[in-house]
Each structure stands twice: as C-alpha cells, then as structure tokens.
Amino acid sequence: MALNTPQITPTKKITVRAIGEELPRGDYQRCPQCDMLFSLPEINSHQSAYCPRCQAKIRDGRDWSLTRLAAMAFTMLLLMPFAWGEPLLHIWLLGIRIDANVMQGIWQMTKQGDAITGSMVFFCVIGAPLILVTSIAYLWFGNRLGMNLRPVLLMLERLKEWVMLDIYLVGIGVASIKVQDYAHIQAGVGLFSFVALVILTTVTLSHLNVEELWERFYPQRPATRRDEKLRVCLGCHFTGYPDQRGRCPRCHIPLRLRRRHSLQKCWAALLASIVLLLPANLLPISIIYLNGGRQEDTILSGIMSLASSNIAVAGIVFIASILVPFTKVIVMFTLLLSIHFKCQQGLRTRILLLRMVTWIGRWSMLDLFVISLTMSLINRDQILAFTMGPAAFYFGAAVILTILAVEWLDSRLLWDAHESGNARFDD
C-alpha cells in the first residue's frame, strides 16, 4: 500500500549564491595573561575582544583620537594649579581661619623630617597626573615632529594605576569627618577644581587605549598563520617573532617567553612588605597634641575612634588600611606557593584573586592621604596640633611594595603550573 505524501511548494523562490571570495581570516594573537594562541577576527570600533580561555580583555573598544586626548590633557593642565594650590577646605580653629590644600599637606610631611613619605604622596597625587598630561601632550606634538614615541607609550600603561586623584578625593571626605570634632569646616574653591580634575582624569584614563596608539604610530604586520613560536610582548602586546637582537619589532624591548626574574622580584617585594606591615600596624601612625597632652593612634585605634562619629567612614578606612593590605599579602603568598608547588586545582579562583588584588591594591594609600591633609588643617603649635607617627613611612612603603609585587608577577606562570593543553579552566 503506497502512502500519498503531499508536496510542499515554497511560496518564495530560494536563491543560492556561491561564495565568490575567501572568507576573511583572523590574525593570530597570544593572550598576555595566559599565553593562549588564538585567531582574533577583525574588530570594529566600539567592540571589545576577550581571550577565549581566561576571559582577559585583549582589545578595548573604547578609543579616543589623539586630538581629543590632547584637549583633555590641556584642560587638566589648566585645572591643576587651582586643584593643588587653592584651598580645598576652610576650618575655623580657636577663632582663626585655616586653609588646607594639597601642596601644603605634602610640605608639612616633608617639613617634619619625613621627606620619603611626603614624596610618596607627591608622586601619586601630583607627579603621576602631571606625567600623564605631559605624556599625552608629548605624543600629540611628537607625532607631528617625527619624534620617538616608544618610551612614552611604554610608560603610559604602567602609569595608570599610580594616578590616585580619586583616592585622594575620598581622603578629603575622611579628613573632614575627623577634623569636624575640633573645628567648623567649609569647602574651599580649590575643592571644585579638584573634583573637576578627578572627573576629567577618570574619563581620560578610561578612554586612553595605549594598544590602539601603538597600532597608529607603529603598525606591524600581524601573524596570519598559526605558529607556536609566536611570542607576545608584555610592553606593547604585539604578537610576532623577535628581531635579530631578540627584541620586539614594535617597542624594541627584549621579547622573552616569560617575564625575567618574575618570581624572585615578586618574592622579594612580598617578604619586604610583610616585614614592614608589622611596625606599620604596631607603631603610632598619627599623633595629636591637645592642650599640651599627647595622644597617639595606631591604624586600628584611629579607626575605632573614627567609628564613634561615623561608622560608615570608619568601615571604608578599615577596608583600605587593614583589610586590603593583608588580603593582598595572603593572596600573593598563596599564588606564589601554588606556582612553586605546581598546583593544578582552583586555577579559576587564583586568576580571579590576582585580578582582584590588581584592582584594589592602590586604595591602601588612602590613610597616607588623610594624614597629609589633616596635617595641613590642624597645626596650632602646642594648643592643638596633628602630626604623623613613625608607622606612616612603614605603611606607605608596604603598600608600594605590594603594588610592585602584583605588577611583577607574570600571570602566565600560573598556567605553566597548571596542566598543559587546557582550553578551559575551572575549579
């Protein structure tokens, strides 16, 4: 018995066209964080690309023209004298008006014999932002004059995390709450300039795509075929072959399989920071003279006294001054041990922890910024005066060393310790 099946006739004509040209192939790229070699397709503007294995951002879609970056830099340069030299806060102490600005706080630190601690604050609040705007201006002028731009481009990517104007702005709020127990506070004209400078700096850093600047100024022929001998440069993120001198053909720094002496430098910085954190938390970090009496505060006791007036601000200072430094030390110690013992479990967790400490590390400088600003506000000789204690130097040095330890660690070593050939990683 035959089955009668109805015929289905399409209502619209289906047209099949042959592909007349070869589909576009992607360029081969190595991930600078996990060293995976993959094919990167062509990316349009405002599109980002991520590593298929570790999800690290390979290409950032946010990109401004150099002219727009230069305009932002010149605007920031105009704001800087007002943000640093004009009063941020006014207080009335014992019937006398006192003005506080950024430069005055750094000068008070240096004047009291601790120039190293003052230079830490100076670099993060004044030096690094000033280098940022002058570097962008150098790129703008240098591109037109045919100057060598490689050193500036190499420095810009590392400079971003040292620009800490946003953290200093939080420190202004913390210092205001600490001082309000002794005097009446009012915002100064410099505060508005400083807030504007923070906003412009944040926007500029978020749109400063150094890798795209490398592509514009020093374009290189990408690798179009897969080759395990391809290496990625950690300076400019170019994937290719080393030249005859073993250097990256684009930025001219040595092109090595792994960062040289990464573990040794990381261990040295980490152990030194552990040693410095002990006096930083045991010795007094601030000293207040009130009517001839002397009151010393460690980091913890200062947080407890701050909690009596504002528990939320005390929580912020606790996280930045105690929780973050010790968390960074514990995480980095764990990561280094996992590399030495070739741990194969929990790779995803370790990668996330490394990215976390990379982002939060700079916030530990908050305590030094609060001390710097408070020193310029309260300084009335023996009637009422505020000065920093010996722990300030140890704390600042420990924070900087932990930042350097994270920067010096080559994250690809975590993958080397893991089993080879993993296309995915999980716990």
Results as ranks from 00 to 15, higher is better:
Ala314Phe: 08
Ile116His: 12
Val317Ser: 00
Phe74Lys: 04
Arg158Glu: 11
Leu270Gly: 07
Ala49Arg: 06
Met332Thr: 06
Leu306Val: 08
Glu161Met: 12
Arg424Asp: 15
Gly146Arg: 08
Tyr28Ile: 13
Ser273Lys: 04
Ile316Tyr: 07
Met76Ala: 03
Leu306Glu: 00
Glu211Ile: 13
Ile316Met: 13
Phe82Ile: 12
Gly127Ser: 07
Ile400Asn: 05
Thr9Lys: 15
Asn310Ile: 06
Ile98Pro: 02
Cys124Arg: 00
Pro219Glu: 07
Lys12Gln: 09
Lys111Ile: 02
Ser135Pro: 01
Thr201Gly: 04
Pro52Phe: 04
Ser262Ile: 02
Arg150Pro: 01
Pro129Leu: 05
Trp214Cys: 15
Leu69Pro: 13
Tyr241Ser: 10
Gly20Phe: 09
Leu77Gln: 09
Glu22Val: 06
Val189Asp: 07
Leu300Phe: 11
Pro129Cys: 06
Gln345Met: 15
Leu263Thr: 08
Trp408Asn: 03
Val152Leu: 01
Ile330Lys: 08
Ser420Glu: 11
Phe194Gln: 12
Gly235His: 04
Met388Lys: 15
Thr202Cys: 14
Pro325Leu: 01
Asp243Leu: 03
Ala405His: 03
Leu145Trp: 11
Leu89Glu: 08
Ala423Pro: 09
Leu234Met: 07
Glu22Asn: 11
Leu413Gln: 10
Pro284Asn: 01
Arg245Asp: 07
Val357Pro: 04
Pro52Leu: 11
Ile400Glu: 02
Met103Gly: 03
Pro390Asn: 00
Ile91Ala: 02
Lys328Arg: 00
Thr201Asn: 06
Phe123Lys: 01
Arg424Val: 12
Gln344Lys: 15
Ala391Glu: 03
Asp381Lys: 02
Phe369His: 05
Glu228Asp: 05
Asp381Arg: 02
Ile378Asn: 00
Arg355Trp: 14
Ser193Phe: 01
Met36Arg: 15
Trp415Thr: 13
Ile311Gln: 11
Cys248Thr: 00
Met1Thr: 00
Ala405Arg: 00
Met365Ala: 04
Leu88Ile: 06
Arg158Met: 14
Phe326Lys: 04
Ala398Gly: 06
Lys342Val: 09
Asn101Arg: 03
Ala128Gln: 02
Gly127Asp: 02
Trp64Ser: 14
Gly61Ala: 12
Cys54Pro: 00
Lys111Ala: 08
Val210Ala: 10
Trp408Gly: 04
Tyr241Lys: 10
Thr224His: 11
Trp140Ser: 04
Leu377Asp: 00
Phe341Leu: 09
Leu88Gln: 03
Ala280Glu: 04
His237Phe: 06
Gly235Gln: 01
Ala405Phe: 11
Gly240Leu: 10
Gly127Leu: 01
Thr387Ile: 10
Gly302Asn: 01
Ala397Ser: 13
Ala70Glu: 13
His252Glu: 02
Leu323Lys: 08
Leu78Gly: 05
Ser411Met: 09
Leu200Ile: 08
Lys13Asp: 09
Phe217Met: 12
Ile19Leu: 10
Ser48Ile: 15
Ile8Gly: 13
Gly235Thr: 03
Arg17Lys: 10
Leu205Ser: 15
Glu407Met: 06
Leu278Asn: 09
Thr224Lys: 14
Arg30Trp: 00
Ile199Ala: 14
Ser119Leu: 01
Met1His: 00
Phe341Met: 07
Thr387Lys: 05
Arg144Ile: 13
Gly190Asn: 03
Ile383Glu: 01
Leu165Asp: 15
Glu211Tyr: 09
Asp367Lys: 00
Pro32Asp: 12
Thr134Met: 12
Met356Cys: 12
Arg247Gly: 04
Pro284Asp: 06
Leu263Met: 13
Arg424Thr: 14
Thr358Val: 08
Gly240His: 07
Ser301Val: 09
Asn101Glu: 02
Ala314Met: 10
Thr334Trp: 12
Phe141Leu: 13
Asn143Phe: 15
Ala269Phe: 02
Arg59Cys: 09
Gly235Cys: 02
Lys229Gly: 08
Val406Lys: 11
Thr374Ser: 12
Asp367Glu: 01
Met80Tyr: 09
